[in-house]
Amino acid sequence: MIRAEGLVKRYRGVTALAGLDLEVEAGTVMALLGPNGAGKTTAVRAITTLLVPDEGRAWVSGVDVLADPMGARARLGLSGQYAAVDEQLSGYENLVMVGRLYHLGRRRSQARARELLDRFDLADAADRPTKTYSGGMRRRLDLAAALVAEPPVLVLDEPTTGLDVRSRAQMWEVIRDLVGSGSTLLLTTQYLEEADRLADEILVIDQGREIARGTADELKSRTGGERIEVVLAEPHRLEDARRELARVALDQVEVGESGRDLSAAVATGAAELRDLLAAYDEKGIKVLDIGLRRPTLDDVFLTLTGHRTESRPGDSGPSGPDAVPLDPAVHDEMEARR
C-alpha cells in the first residue's frame, strides 16, 4: 500500500534522507521510530507529495507520487505534527471545507463532518472556532480531517508529540480503533512505547537511514525487556546489592557513577522485581528507590548504534523542551514540573 525506494533528500549539505526504503502492507501499521532530526518528517513529506526527493521513488496505493501527485493525494490522508486546521473556523467548518476539497460534494461533506466530530468526541465543540480548542482536541480534529474522504492510506506524523498524558492515551485509543477498521497506516514517533502499542512493524531510523526493523518484540529482544533500577540507601552495600540483582538479571548489571545506583535488564519485570525486593529485605539492604523502567528509544539506540540519541540542528521536529524527552514518562514528569 505504501512503498518507498531509495529516498534521498539533502538540504544545503545536510542529508536528511540517505536512501530509505520502506514498505507497508495493506491493513498494517508501520511506525517510523527515531529521534529528532532522524529524517522521519522528511520521509513522510516525500511520501505524501509535500516535497520532491532528490533521489528515489514512492507509491501510495500503487500510484507513483512523483508521476501523479494528485492521484496520490486523493488516496491518502495526512495528519501532521502541527495540527493543520484553521484557527478562526469551527471544527465543523474545517471538516466541511476539507471534504469539499476532496470533492465529496457539499451534502456528503457536511454529513461526514458531523459523523467524525461525534466519533472523535468533538461534537460539543463543533461550532466553536478551533483556536478555543485544547492541544489534544486540535490533534483529534486534524486526524479527523485526514479521515474525511476515508482514504485507504493514512500517514500520521508524530500524532502525540507535545500532548499531555490523558490526551496521548485518548489519541492512542482513536488510532487503535482506526487500525482495527483495517486502515493502512504509517506513523512516525519518538516514543518506543507508542510504536510498541500501535505498530505491527517498527522501522528505526537515524540520520536518514534504517538502523533496524522488526516487530516490537523483536526489537525488544535485541535491547532487553524492562529494566530494574535501584538506588541504594547505603553505598557500602553495593557489592551485596549487585550480587542479588545479578541473580535475576538477563545480562550484566550496570553500576552508575555515583556508586549507589544499579540497573539491569530483566526478562519479564514484575516477577524479578518481587524476588529482588524479597532478597534485599532478607539481607537487610536498604534502598532509596527501586522500580521498573520500560526500555526507551534511547536504550534501543544505545544497543543498536552504540551511541545515544541526539538532536541535531536542521531537525524536523519542534524545538524547545517538548522535543527533547524520548520517553513519555520522562516527558510527563517534565510537564508536571513546569
Binding site: A84, V98, D142
Partner: peptide, 17 residues
C-alpha cells in the same frame, strides 16, 4: 506561515485554489 497550508497541499485540490 500557518499549518493550514500543509493541509491544502496534501489535498487533491487545484494548485491554483
Amino acid at each position: 506561515q500557518k499549518g493550514i497550508i500543509d493541509r491544502f497541499r496534501s489535498l487533491p485540490m487545484a494548485r491554483s485554489a
